[in-house]
């Protein structure tokens, strides 16, 4: 039925797209993966001379790697927890309560996305400069927190609005206070979607590079920031490759859980498509 433009027999168009995209998108990552498990790969051999885990041991023995892993995790956890703590109640309020200026405030979260991001970061850094937040952990937390607001409010608002009001009323009816209703009914019902939002915001924070680099570096060194310095200054290619593989783990988890969500057209509509 839907095959109006592409014939159903042999999908040559599709096969060509698939081949080209595989080459362009998957191949570079496979190369990185190969480098990570290579002990020796000297020019001009097409395949590595020796595979092995030697550089995993070496990379994981580096203190700067461990400290930036822990910095990144601490940051991501802190930002996500803070973001959840301030955004979820706000999302609930937007979804369920009426108050003056509700719509305007709701759309105000778009403001951060109406400007070129790095320009905005520089403007924020200008403010941080006066507050001595440059080069501090909390400076980075703040800047990454701002980055999570839109998602952490808009997605949960949708989730809360999808919860059947009658379910909540039924809970009031059997004697639950408004807070109890939220805790026992609304939150569990909206749970899966909110979990997806939290996961996305965790992953987003984990990879956030520009804010961390501008505000935090070199004092606050997250994994992506360390990765930049590896790329710039580290002659041993495998360090970067191993770090890339390590760095990709949260993405992989997000890929497993959030793929359906991203593919469901509503996600794109959230970007205005």
């Amino acid at each position: 039925m839907a095959a109006t433009l592409v014939s159903r027999k042999t999908d040559w168009t599709g096969i060509i797209f698939a081949a080209v995209l595989t080459l362009v998108i998957v191949f570079p990552l496979v190369v990185v993966g190969t480098w990570a498990f290579t002990n020796v790969w000297r020019y001009p051999s097409v395949i590595p001379q020796e595979f092995g885990l030697r550089f995993w041991n070496q990379t994981l023995a580096r203190a700067d790697v461990w400290s930036s892993i822990s910095t990144s995790l601490t940051l991501a956890f802190t930002v996500t927890a803070l973001s959840a703590a301030i955004c979820l109640p706000a999302a609930y309020a937007f979804a369920r309560l009426d108050f003056p200026g509700r719509n305007l405030l709701f759309f105000s979260f778009l403001a951060g996305h109406a400007f070129p991001k790095f320009g905005l970061l520089v403007a924020i850094a200008g403010i941080f400069l006066q507050l001595n937040l440059i080069g501090t952990f909390w400076g980075v937390v703040l800047i990454q927190l701002v980055g999570t607001l839109l998602f952490m409010i808009w997605i949960p608002v949708a989730a809360f609005q999808a919860v059947d009001r009658r379910m909540e009323e039924a809970a009031r009816d059997v004697g639950a206070s408004p807070f109890r209703v939220f805790w026992s009914i609304t939150l569990p019902q909206a749970g899966p979607t909110i979990a997806a939002a939290i996961l996305l915001s965790f992953v987003g924070t984990f990879y956030e590079t520009e804010g961390a680099w501008l505000i935090g570096a070199p004092q606050v060194r997250t994994l992506p920031v360390l990765m930049i310095s590896f790329i710039n200054n580290q002659p041993v290619i495998q360090y970067g490759a191993v770090l890339s593989v390590l760095l990709w783990v949260p993405s992989f988890i997000a890929l497993l859980f959030a793929r359906k969500v991203v593919n469901s057209g509503s996600f794109a509509r959230g970007f205005g498509g």
Partner: peptide, 19 residues
């Protein structure tokens, strides 16, 4: 408020808590 009333309501959409 509803939680303090001695009333019990049955909704059209049954509004059972699916979790």
């Amino acid at each position: 408020p509803p939680e303090k009333r001695p009333t019990g309501m049955v909704f059209q959409s049954h509004a059972l808590w699916t979790h």
